[in-house]
């Protein structure tokens, strides 16, 4: 039982990270019809940039961290929208999706060539000790991840629901045409979601890299699980992405422990197929209008 709870907590911790990535993914999907296939690489890169800043410029960790994050937000928040999404969205959803695939390759191979083909350790912000809680040994890191990720999601929820700016963003996501009529600066709101997405990716990156190390190929699994989380949760909602992320994280963790470590990846995939077959609109999703 103690073992089970430990795996459960580990699963919730990684699940919270998938949720961060999945929320960013649904945000940009909602506001700008962008299916970002580079989402996993978005989570991989900030840690790599930070280590790069430390290594190349000889900066202390905090300064390298700030610089790396700033560069990332600039290029993959604002730059991504202005350079990739804006010129391409007029061609339709599909070319844009493919463009993000190309971007994911550039990011991944770029990190491999420009940084390192090997996994590099990334400093943890909290002690890596284990604590014993009622007979269950729990990693402090996992607890910290859960706290930080939930705080970030809580903050986002408050921003979206509780502030004027957030509500404007929400309105833009739901119906850009109406939002424009209401005088909401739609373009700026879309840009805001891209920045938010990049910021969420930064948080996820800082949380996951101390555990999984900073490596160019990290984005593959994270991206895949983020997509699955978004679909399982219902593609269109922050809450759905959260539920989906946690579910995937826990399923993955338990599968690794009790099913087969070789096929742990397969369990979330099976979950995806099951959801598509049984409840295609996702656990928390609403049925969409049929068009075709």
């Amino acid at each position: 039982m103690a073992e089970f709870i430990a795996y459960l907590i580990a699963g919730i911790a990684t699940g919270a990270i998938y949720a961060l990535a999945a929320i960013g993914f649904t945000l940009v999907w909602q506001t700008s019809q962008t299916i970002n296939f580079a989402q996993g690489e978005f989570v991989m890169l900030p840690a790599v940039l930070i280590l790069l800043a430390v290594k190349l410029l000889g900066l202390p960790l905090w300064a390298g961290g700030l610089l790396g994050i700033a560069v990332f937000l600039l290029i993959f928040g604002a730059g991504f929208k202005l350079v990739v999404v804006d010129p391409m969205i007029k061609h339709g959803v599909l070319p844009l999706a493919i463009a993000t695939m190309a971007l994911s390759i550039v990011m991944k191979e770029g990190a491999k060539d420009g940084f390192s083909a090997e996994a590099q350790s990334f400093p943890s912000l909290v002690p890596t000790d284990m604590i014993n809680l009622l007979g269950v040994s729990i990693s402090l890191q996992h607890l910290a991840i859960i706290v930080v990720a939930f705080a970030a999601i809580g903050l986002l929820q408050w921003f979206v629901g509780g502030t004027r700016l957030g509500r404007q963003m929400q309105a833009t996501a739901q119906n850009p045409t109406v939002a424009r009529i209401l005088g909401i600066p739609v373009e700026r709101m879309v840009l805001l979601t891209f920045l938010l997405n990049a910021a969420l990716a930064v948080v996820a990156s800082l949380l996951i890299s101390p555990i999984y190390l900073a490596k160019f190929s990290n984005g593959e699994t994270i991206g895949l699980f983020a997509f699955i989380a978004a679909i399982v949760g219902g593609f269109n909602q922050v809450r759905g992405a959260l539920v989906g992320g946690l579910l995937i994280g826990v399923a993955d963790s338990l599968a690794a422990a009790y099913v087969s470590s070789q096929y742990r990846l397969a369990v979330p995939l099976v979950l995806l197929v099951a959801i598509i077959l049984i409840k295609p609109e996702g656990l928390m999703g609403r049925k969409e209008e049929r068009r075709v």
Partner: peptide, 24 residues
Amino acid sequence: FPALRVRTHYLAFVTLAFSTLIWL
């Protein structure tokens, strides 16, 4: 069949998952 029953871009995700599965 299951993917296209829902929404067309689901095929991308289902094939993505399949790709990983075959690799495993």
